[in-house]
Simulated assay, not measured.
Amino acid sequence: MREVVFDTETTGLDPKTGDRMVEIGCVEMIGRVETGKTFHAYYNPERDMPSAAEAVHGLSSNFLSAKPLFSEGADDLLEFLGDAPLVAHNAGFDFGFLNAELERIGREPISLDRMVDTVAIARKKHPGAKASLDALCTRYGIDRSHRVKHGALLDAELLAQVYVELTGGRQIGLELAGEMDSADNASAGHSDATGLPKSDPATRREPRPHAASAEELSRHAAFVETMKDAIWVR
């Protein structure tokens, strides 16, 4: 299943009061494995950059003034996102800014049904523990030494690693195909009333027989008879 992990940087905390998205970074994953395909863009917010926000991500008004408007790059972004589930940390924040930018240019907002919030997953998996991106990187041994300031693509890349850990670990690709399908169904909302993945009777196979046949048992007994001074008869 294709998923896109993304992060945004903004001029502040609330798009309803005039704050704008100034950077977005996206990482493509298929079957919880990064494909190497990414999307990254800066946008001119057409307003000043508050010093508190600049201290977080380091993006100045001067730097952003030479970048394109969101309207000029919206099609490229939407093409990359496609119809995949969108994974973000505290996803309501990022969805809020992304949809505010889309609505500002008369485009349809992205459905919240596509939202996968890693903060919610982390709080469920580790109740009472810190759920910040830094804290989760520390918990799972993910190197973030190069993260001096927030950056949308860098944070999306770190979050992709965290997301793998939250949903099965780094060896998730070694699971049996049936288990992978169940994990995909669960993340896509295909679960029953208990929250467990639904099984698909159409794809279920009957177990294969594993008991030895009479012929195989006879051949094994004959082989054992050829062994001299066997340890189990001493």
Rank of each mutant, 00 (worst) to 15 (best):
V56N: 06
C26S: 12
M115G: 10
D76Q: 13
E108N: 10
L102F: 04
G25W: 00
I30W: 01
F39M: 00
V224H: 08
E79K: 14
P85Q: 06
T194G: 10
A74P: 09
V162I: 08
G173F: 13
R20W: 01
V4W: 00
R147V: 11
I121F: 06
A152Y: 00
H126C: 12
K228H: 07
T10K: 04
S65L: 07
G178N: 11
H57P: 01
D181C: 03
E157C: 09
V119F: 05
P197C: 12
S65M: 13
A135Q: 06
F97T: 03
N44P: 15
Y42H: 13
V87H: 00
T167N: 12
A221L: 15
D192H: 08
G189N: 11
Q171S: 15
E108F: 02
A177Y: 12
S71Y: 00
G36P: 05
R20F: 07
D83G: 15
S71H: 03
E215H: 03
E101A: 14
R139S: 05
E23P: 05
R234Q: 15
V116K: 03
T194I: 08
D155G: 09
T226W: 06
D181F: 14
D75T: 13
D19W: 02
A52C: 10
P207I: 11
V148I: 15
D184V: 13
T10G: 13
S71A: 15
G169V: 00
K124W: 08
E206W: 11
E215S: 13
G169P: 03
E23V: 00
R114G: 14
